[in-house]
């Protein structure tokens, strides 16, 4: 009884994760701009992979509690993979957005760009060196 219930929970988690990953693909195709595409391509995949890894962790936990020690390997390794995704994905997105802005890509439909005349760290250092 409890076994089948956990199976149903695993399938629901898989469905939610796949739904958000497909939303990421659709958003990448439909959005007009680099910055809005970053929203779709990074946030949706991070949120979806939380649920997909959660289903694998639940599978391993059930195996572990029922007495099979191999389940602990599933739980720990998938947890490490989830932490790796959660740490690296937003950092990469931040670096990409900064690189896109500095390489001169403008947001579509933006009226004002407040970062336009703001000196970057390197150019500020050069200005100080000239003085």
């Amino acid at each position: 009884m409890l076994n089948q219930l956990i199976d149903i929970v695993i399938y629901i988690l898989l469905a939610i994760g796949v739904f958000f990953n497909i939303l990421a693909g659709i958003g990448l195709l439909r959005f007009p701009d680099v910055y809005t595409r970053l929203h779709a391509g990074t946030k949706c995949t991070t949120f979806g992979s939380i649920f997909l890894c959660g289903s694998v962790i639940l599978y391993g936990l059930r195996m572990w509690i029922l007495g099979n020690v191999d389940g602990s390997i599933w739980v720990i390794h998938t947890g490490i993979a989830l932490v790796a995704i959660l740490l690296t994905n937003p950092t990469g997105a931040h670096a990409l957005a900064r690189a896109a802005h500095r390489s001169g890509v403008k947001p579509v439909g933006a009226v004002i760009d407040e970062l336009e005349n703001k000196p970057t760290k390197k150019s500020a250092n050069k200005m100080e060196a000239k003085k």
């Binding site: 898989l14 994760g17 990953n21 990421a24 693909g25 990448l28 680099v34 595409r37 970053l38 391509g41 990074t42 995949t45 991070t46 979806g48 992979s49 997909l52 890894c53 289903s55 694998v56 599978y59 599933w74 998938t78 993979a81 995704i85 994905n89 990469g92 997105a93 990409l96 690189a99 896109a100 390489s103 890509v105």
Partner: peptide, 24 residues
Amino acid sequence: APDRIVGLDTINTIVIVSMIIFGL
């Protein structure tokens, strides 16, 4: 060019997740 890199980043994340699901 940044559009293409955003696409590559998304592909990488989805490949990681599908590897985990394939392992399961």
